[in-house]
Design a protein around this nucleic acid. Structure first.
Lengths: 346, 346
DNA sequence: CTGTTAGCGCGTTCAC
DNA sequence: GTGAACGCGCTAACAG
């Protein structure tokens, strides 16, 4: 019922930032014209575009993406949901994703599930509340609600790390079973027969468990019994690797080779072996997965199945961006494969 | 329970998500009451709260944080701006920040400057467009515009990694000069005199350059001339460490100790030395900074000045959250210090 | 303790 | 090519 005062400089809530309306006033056009000049410059005359640009510059206008997001839905935010940041494996992927997204003017919202699919479901709900432009999540296994929601969501989704059947939308990763099989076969080819699988966090990290499964498959295919498994409840670390070495040396019959669920564990074993003077691979061959930067600098360098993690991140972002720009990616499901890097530890 | 179609199924732009209005209808209250029941439960009656909760549950309501952000300003997003994710140093900090924020219901928006303060300024502008609840940035040096904007912004800001005079708002970190001095003094105390500083990326990483400065100060205080500096343009890596070892061994007079700008570089030197049979510390003492997990697993373990990075992240998040909850943190500027961890490499 | 009103800043209708 | 309305979903004000 009041109208007279406070009409103009209200600011009772705003943060006093320069808004699109300010730019419009300065440029002598309607707000919508500024919006068009900025977002679809083709639909505005050169002259107006120039005036608007000048006003933007003069006022130091920065768009409020929140308001834009509310109006149009789509905030140029891409949530990236991974199990943990304490695992080096994810860092390079995230780094690559972030670089690519940022170059395209999108921001990465990083969230972690702590390996819990229920938490993941909650996070997906939450981040969808930000009207993101797309979503990147880890793996192909999710809470059923996540799958339903994202499928009917209608915006681009990429699942990374693992590749397989029936992704929610797009998918870039590697085949975990194949990884497990390949390392076991490599060890068998090298002549090792008393092969142990050492795994960390297998109960939580089902992709590591897949590697174990592939490992056992390969042994079975070679007509051998299932290999023994050393399992550690904690996430992989150099310290767990050191413990694993001790446990391996205490086993009877003494194993001649160990496949480790990831390179951190394998590196921990090599580092501990070096400290204790255990000769690698003569006394024990060690193989890892995923190819961390440290692997090649150890003595001997670690034999590992390298996965192109940066590339995985880059491609995941690329797929997302293509879809955001209205294109239809040629191969929305990509198996990046892996490479056996023989370092000398086998 | 279906209403008359038409009004309920408009969805002409929205994503068809359940909104607060839907919950209000279901619970038989006004939308604002639902808002209050969810955000400030103390201000509504038990009965209403229960009805609202039931409706939320029944409908599967998830708040649209974008809309909330527009209305109230404050999206429960905390941008974290760091130079790079390729540096292990930042990962643990980020991990700790993310864990703490997420536990409090905030999301982390991660952006990288690629060591460029102009890029940082652009990023700050961009992320402020998301009406974040607070901001965390790296270091105390920024583009003047960043400092002005954030100071008048009025929401909590934490600068991390480095501690010093005149932060924008709050500050948690370590004193770079002190780090540099402490390592140099340690090497001097051990009796080394031909001490080299090996640094990576010093032109970009001014905090690493501060450590060099402190290093030279300590030499000067001991009445020694400025030590030689080996400088590498790239970011630190194990490979650069290997090159550094070669360069060190080629110097005349042959140095007896090297302080490395960070632990990656130092580890690279130790790994290469181990490969080449160089005896550490007899032929060359090696010291690092920041205390990466790998350090203690090398042979010999690396002597380093450990910085509590997880703690830094946790405390930064904690300060921010305290302010977001209306409290005034006791110590808004915190020097976390460092610990000399003697590993045997010196 | 609860409801009414009025926007937050922008983009999508539709007009002109 | 440009502009006027309207509304996205939510919450700060100010009643009652």
């Amino acid at each position: 019922m009041d109208r007279q005062e406070g009409r103009s400089r209200k600011r009772h809530r705003g943060q006093g930032r320069v808004t699109l309306a300010d730019v419009a006033r300065q440029a002598g056009v309607a707000p919508i014209t500024v919006s068009r000049a900025l977002n679809t410059p083709g639909r505005v005359s050169e002259a107006v575009k120039a005036r608007v640009d000048a006003a933007v510059e003069a006022l130091g206008y920065v768009p409020n993406l929140i308001a834009g997001g509310l109006a149009a839905a789509g905030t140029r935010v891409i949530p990236v949901i991974v199990p943990s940041l304490a695992i080096l494996t994810f860092i390079e992927v995230i780094d690559a994703i972030q670089k690519r997204l940022e170059a395209a003017g999108y921001q990465m919202l990083l969230a972690t599930t702590d390996w819990d699919l229920d938490r993941e479901a909650g996070l997906v709900d939450t981040v969808l509340g930000y009207s993101p432009s797309g979503v990147i999540l880890t793996g192909l296994r999710h809470h059923p609600r996540v799958i339903t929601r994202l499928k009917e969501w209608g915006r681009p989704v990429v699942e990374i790390m693992e590749v397989g059947e029936d992704p929610i939308d797009m998918n870039v990763g590697v085949d975990g079973l194949a990884l497990g099989r390949a390392m076991a076969r490599h060890l068998l080819d090298k002549g090792y027969r008393r092969i142990v699988f050492a795994g960390s966090h297998l109960g939580h990290d089902y992709r590591a468990a897949q590697r174990l499964e592939g490992h056992q498959q390969a042994l079975a295919e070679a007509g051998l019994p299932q290999g023994p498994v050393l399992e550690y409840a904690e996430p992989a670390s150099y310290a767990v690797g050191a413990r694993a070495l001790a446990d391996l040396l205490a086993m009877t019959p003494r194993p001649d080779a160990v496949a480790c669920s990831n390179d951190i564990l394998a590196s921990g074993i090599l580092l501990a072996a070096s400290k204790q003077g255990i000769r690698i691979p003569d006394e024990l061959a060690v193989g890892g997965y995923l190819g961390l930067p440290l692997a090649e600098h150890l003595s001997p360098p670690l034999t590992t199945l390298a996965v192109a993690r940066s590339d995985m991140g880059r491609q995941a972002a690329e797929l997302l961006l293509q879809r955001l720009e209205g294109m239809t990616p040629a191969e929305p499901v990509r198996d990046l494969g892996f490479t056996l890097v023989e370092g000398g530890s086998t």
